[in-house]
Design a protein around this nucleic acid. Structure first.
Lengths: 213, 213
DNA sequence: TAGATTGTTAATCGATTAACAATC
DNA sequence: TAGATTGTTAATCGATTAACAATC
């Protein structure tokens, strides 16, 4: 439908932050903002903001700037936060539970329709309106309910790698991946967002260390 | 002490991943690897690996490649994973508990010496060998125990912004920031690693959406 | 020595920033 | 209209990739 112009990855990665800031401005009741004022608040250049937004269309008006609500809605629509997407969660340990309880999935159009865990002690328990099911049931569940996204909050085991294969076969289109398993290598067509928490912590390790020398 | 050559941020961000991969190779008992073989495994170019490593020194040997254990140790030492750094955790809700239980801090030289939460129901309880203390006590605790890092696992409230100010005054040098508060803006000298989980999820939202059009 | 692979310089590529004409 | 600010093109900057001489 759209021109489907190629959008550089760095631009895509900045969209959620634009959306977040515009949401805050909207909350505050600000109704217009210029690229230079927004750049000041977000800590980037006005040029970059205009450049980024113009990948998707001319949302501003010369001499005026951008209408906050309109721009917020436009970016929301580009991101597709209003389209319902079904998600499942694999792993309901500490991290999985935190993700399940902490994230407001609905805000981005995600619906958590299934939670799975290996641990029999957790199976049958309720978490975020879901009854925790055995992990082995996940592929079958996907065949029946066709979720779009799988959230992986499990340790990096061989079985998990196999589970990923089965999930892809069952039609999962995207992974929110908290493991260190490299999904993209085998499945370049699948959308993967890796969250390597330890890598992020290690970066701080380096920076604190640079002080000492 | 060192030449303190400027290291580009993208290089620093790749170091944890190099360290992780070399750790895995070491586990497997691989004793040497060439940049081209490592590049194949990591999904980047051999040029980039050699370029990156040579920011810190010539760790390889022509005609041979790199000694896995030696390179692992070198990168570990660059990152400073063996230097003890004290950390505190602010917020012991779902996310804070997951972080406290899930991360093997010791692997990167971090020691979790204090956990704080606003919620009186949590105060006094044990978490990862720490008794949860009232958040208000954190600045005083920092004066006495001088931790290097504060991990922020709390909602984005005005009080948290004030707490950050106090923590900086009390000598905190780095933040592992799970909130959306912009710490760098006010404190450019402080090391901040932002983990915007929702931004990462929203990126998947965009990509799943791009399928539909 | 010959073969392999590094360290490093040069070329390319892409992203960011600057500039300015278009226009509200 | 004059002033402001966008949309867009051009210039700059930096990061990645390619090439190759050095050398183990």
């Amino acid at each position: 439908m759209s021109a489907n112009k190629y959008i550089p990855l760095p631009v895509i990665k900045r969209l959620p932050r634009y959306h977040r800031f515009l949401g805050m401005l909207k909350e505050k009741g600000v109704d217009r903002i210029s690229s230079s004022e927004l750049s000041r608040q977000m800590g980037l250049t006005a040029s970059q903001i205009r450049q980024d937004l113009n990948c998707f269309g001319g949302f501003g008006q010369q001499g005026y700037g951008y209408n906050v609500v309109m721009l917020y809605d436009e970016i929301g629509s580009i991101l597709g936060v209003n389209n319902i997407k079904k998600a499942i969660l694999i792993g309901a340990g500490n991290l999985g539970q935190a993700i399940a309880r902490h994230m407001t999935f609905s805000k981005w159009g995600f619906e958590l329709i299934g939670i799975f865990d290996e641990n029999p002690a957790l199976q049958g328990k309720e978490l975020r309106n879901n009854i925790i099911m055995p992990t082995a049931d996940a592929p079958d569940f996907c065949e029946k309910n066709s979720p779009d996204l799988a959230i992986l909050c499990v340790p990096n085991t061989e079985e998990v790698a196999e589970m990923i294969e089965k999930l892809v076969e069952s039609g999962i289109k995207a992974f929110w991946n908290f493991t260190h398993i490299d999904i993209k290598a085998k499945h370049p067509e699948i959308y993967v967002e890796n969250v390597h928490l330890s890598d992020s912590l290690v970066t701080l390790c380096y920076q604190l260390n640079s002080d000492i020398e």
